[in-house]
Design a protein around this nucleic acid. Structure first.
Lengths: 201, 201
DNA sequence: GCCATAATAGGAACACGTTCCACTTCCCGT
DNA sequence: ACGGGAAGTGGAACGTGTTCCTATTATGGC
């Protein structure tokens, strides 16, 4: 259907193809986790996934597509792991801070992986917009959910969505500063607290 | 003094060296303006600046250093052009919106250049922190100046600096979305208005 | 089962950032 | 003026993302 975008899960007919795709993403995550963005080399991914280089490019048309797709999968996995559980905190500010703090802590545990995925996200151009949009929506919805009342069935207001977008932007910028070694993990948490306090007052 | 950082203007003794540095940055801007990040090829820069490739790398140890340095020079130039002139607008919100709107308009006029510089900025790692910090400080100070009273001699408060940083982060994220073709120039202006309204209320 | 077509393997080739080397030119201290 | 070290030249070479080509293998319709 679309040669410019990576093959998504659904349009992969055979089980062998879904298996290949999984192997490729697993190899990507493993290499990224070991050595970051630079260690995710297309030849290495192909070899570790036991797939030819040309096949890798058939599934993911660029290194950026590959990494952003891997980011999307990890994000989904992480979201699924905590779906349904209520977010602790009495106020929107407390809950958003909780979510951001926990996520930041997870990312700190695997700096190389975080670096690889964040860099890919920031470097992605329009040809990756589908995958980027997917991740962006997940991020915004996590934040609006944390901001809203915990019943969860009500749609977030326009204002809440706008605030969530701003928080997401600040978070991305801070993350870039961290993964590129320009600021510390503590700096990220501080930035986020400040932004949340300013926006949710 | 520092082999990892690019040679700054001050530590360049001879006039011939300052002239070379200027030619290199001019070539960088010209190529970026014509074809964006990808068009800034080190061989092309060297040739257009009439300098050997090795010399280019002596002045700027990587393509990223080169582009971020060029960004710093352009930023300074633009700041110098409007120094002293009072910023129109009765409220901090209006003044900040004015500054952001004008800057966004300037950037829109040369999308390729903006793309090249923004991408370099987001891709820069710790080895470029000096240059990055330089640009970051200029950006924050432009914003605090717009936020403060127009007398200008008073230092900005901690709160103002924090708000300026958040606005800067949102601006960068939006800019990345724009230069990578994921959002329109109008989207950038909208994002910024929303962020400014939320932060300066 | 058999054929047409698509998918994959395997790997050469190319582009561009980066490094390196041998040689030349410039510039400063004496 | 000159000798020596720093700076510059020109270009080869290397690594990695990307493209491309041919041979082989899987797949789906008859």
């Amino acid at each position: 259907m679309n040669a410019l975008n990576s093959l998504t899960q659904e349009e992969l007919g055979s089980a062998a193809q879904r298996e290949r795709r999984k192997r490729i993403l697993d190899a990507t995550i493993a290499l990224a986790s070991r050595g970051g963005f630079d260690a995710v080399q297309m030849r290495a991914v192909a070899e570790q996934a036991d797939v030819a280089l040309g096949t890798l490019y058939r599934y993911f048309p660029s290194k950026i597509h590959l990494l952003v797709s891997a980011l999307g999968r990890e994000f989904e996995r992480s979201q699924a792991a905590m779906a349904g559980k209520p977010i602790p905190g009495e106020t929107p500010e407390a809950r958003v801070n909780y979510v951001l703090g926990r996520t930041t802590k997870i990312l700190q545990k695997d700096p190389n992986l975080t670096e690889a995925l964040t860099r890919a996200f920031m470097f992605a151009d329009a040809s990756v917009s589908t995958e980027i949009h997917h991740v962006g929506m997940m991020l915004t919805s996590v934040l609006t959910e944390a901001m809203g009342t915990r019943t969860g069935d009500a749609e977030p207001t326009e204002e809440e969505i706008a605030i969530a977008r701003v928080i997401g932007d600040v978070w991305l910028s801070s993350l870039v500063g961290w993964v590129t070694g320009r600021s510390s993990a503590t700096d990220v948490e501080t930035s986020m607290s400040v932004a949340v306090r300013l926006l949710l007052r």
